[in-house]
Design a protein around this nucleic acid. Structure first.
Lengths: 354, 354
DNA sequence: ATCGTTGTCGATAACGTTTTCCATCATTCC
DNA sequence: GGAATGATGGAAAACGTTATCGACAACGAT
């Protein structure tokens, strides 16, 4: 029943280089009159095959349009030469990181594939972990996590987390200096002369948001300016809630002369609300954001913001991951990248209108 | 040397649910005291195993943290339950399509992974084809192509192209109605009273760009307004070249009173140039774009543009692909989606300034 | 003439699943 | 009480590749 030379049964007569239905190595071997071993050697340029047969086999490979089955190869070797990048959703931040990663992947010999949680990150906690278990060692050699809520993922494979908003992550991480960045943004406002500065805060459960608020406070402390707690409103990194927060602040009897938003998204929402309430930016209100997403440069007026090197984050994450996969020891397991202040048109000295 | 029961050699004593280094089905079987067949049946809920042993095996599976090897599974079955989406680069358009696809994938039982060409699309033509050969039937069950330059890809597997700018594609496609959309945009300008309308055209080799130009001409013809050929300038969908084109048009002795850009990117560039030259928009110049990328709403002033249902494109592409994989016959192989005009602040009647 | 040596090539065992088929055993019916 | 029946578990082949190792020829050196 099982014919050892069943390849002969259906001789590959067709010379059409069909691209669809897969042509296997056996067929190439049969067609070329050699063994599969030889074909494999030719495919991988291994030593031990004469240039003559090599050429011949190569020709057959081309003619049949043979492509090696990555699945079978991965099953045999444990490596796949693929790196996975997991994003919770394709928002501006993760998209930029993705671009940086896509850029860094070149010349590493790896391919990059992006998986999206599609926003179902709320449904199931520990979702990143299950994802890792599923794909690691089977579909990818390593993974980059760009999910904001990496609660407490532990994994002993090659995994790098980008901007792990929670601090006590045991994973190697690369993040921007949220504390320093926030200080810089608020310092800028203080230097301009603002003394009543409001803040639209981020998601309370994310460490990045906590750090930005801490930077806000530290800047005040360093300048000897007291923080008015009534000037802090929860924006939660959510556009709608950020609008609400901004509205609350601007409708105060004594509204702040400047607002520091934990997020560009929130800053943009604040700009919207200001326009809606007839508050002129920057003359009656200065606004500073955080992230410098592409949209911010196009806002009206263009947003002054603390720039996070998003592409660089992706770039460094890949670099770390590649080293990790190679078994190298990481010089630094927690990389913190500098932030910079991008001054555009939403900030000026208070009372500039008069 | 090859011990048939080598599983016994290293009994799985560790009860730590290690998540890293892969635990195989054999180990589970050995630990549970059953055969691999049984474990497989339990994993897949197949009939033929008592609830008692099933429970027992399930417990062991949980304890060891076993996850099935997708590679091995894919090798055995020919399906992978993964759909690949290939983008040339992560620009706004493809990112939006990606979001739509990610949305549509839910509940289909498939997972979505995105591959990026990383901009090296220029280096090698026929790149999409090689990609397809590599991944189809091995890593993914089907693919969505979101590359603008699908020259003449032929492939007989389940593949759907989104916005295949070249017409004679033999692949099933889903695209927006570029012709109708362009007509709508230009009609809008004509209805406002504009008679000298310029156009920043797109990449000459892309059918989508050609269609938009044709829409431009047809709208003129329908309104009985002659087209002034000197008012067409090549923008090529490139920011820099679009700026140049806009500059050329606006520096004409008799500049146009309105410009239709083949692209939001080009329209945004036009806005920039107008500001640079001190031309007021919309009072001295009306501008209409095409696509309605997220940035357009934030432009200054907010851009009037022809909206392409980008998310819907991704959504429909996935729907078609899933049907295709299921072996169903497609009701329509070339789906054309409606476009709509989004009126914002960059258009008004000519001479409104006076 | 014999013995290594080198250069080619092929047989074969994995990799970790799924699936088909068969063996075993308890049950039930005549 | 024996045989048909059904339920349950296991053995083994297969998926397509790669790596190891042995076979075999041709050849030069002793």
């Amino acid at each position: 029943m099982t014919d050892p030379v069943k390849v002969e049964e259906s001789p590959v007569e067709q010379t059409t280089p069909r691209v669809g239905s897969r042509v296997t190595m056996q067929q190439v071997a049969a067609e070329a009159g050699v063994s599969v071993s030889t074909v494999s050697k030719v495919m991988n340029g291994r030593y031990g095959v004469s240039t003559q047969t090599s050429d011949h086999v190569s020709k057959v490979i081309d003619r049949l349009g043979y492509e090696t089955s990555l699945v079978a190869r991965s099953l045999r070797n444990t490596r796949t030469n693929v790196i996975g990048l997991l994003v919770a959703d394709f928002e501006p931040f993760s998209t930029e990181v993705l671009k940086g990663a896509a850029d860094a992947i070149r010349g590493t010999g790896y391919e990059l594939v992006a998986y999206s949680a599609g926003g179902r990150t709320d449904e199931h906690v520990g979702w990143e972990r299950r994802y890792l278990s599923r794909v690691m060692g089977t579909l990818v050699d390593g993974a980059v996590l760009v999910t904001p809520t990496v609660t407490d993922v532990q994994y002993d494979g090659p995994v790098v987390a980008v901007d792990p908003h929670t601090g006590r992550s045991s994973l190697p991480t690369v993040a921007a200096d949220n504390l320093q960045g926030a200080r810089m943004g608020v310092d800028h406002l203080l230097a301009l002369g603002h003394r009543r500065i409001g803040m639209v805060t981020g998601r309370a459960d994310l460490v990045s948001a906590q750090l930005r608020e801490r930077g806000f406070r530290e800047a005040h402390a360093a300048a000897g300016v007291p923080v008015d707690e009534s000037l802090l409103a929860l924006g939660a990194f959510d556009p709608e809630q950020a609008r609400e927060a901004a509205r609350t602040l601007l409708r105060l009897p004594r509204p702040p002369t400047a607002i520091f938003a934990a997020n560009d998204i929130s800053a943009l929402a604040t700009l919207d609300v200001a326009a809606e309430l007839g508050v002129d930016v920057p003359d009656q209100l200065s606004v500073v954001g955080f992230d410098n997403i592409p949209e911010s440069a196009l806002a009206h007026p263009p947003l002054t913001t603390v720039q996070q090197p998003m592409r660089q984050l992706g770039h460094d994450a890949i670099a770390m991951l590649v080293a990790l996969i190679a078994g190298e020891e990481l010089a630094q397991t927690h990389v913190i990248l500098e932030t910079t202040l991008v001054r555009r048109r939403t900030t000026t000295a208070p009372g500039a209108a008069s």
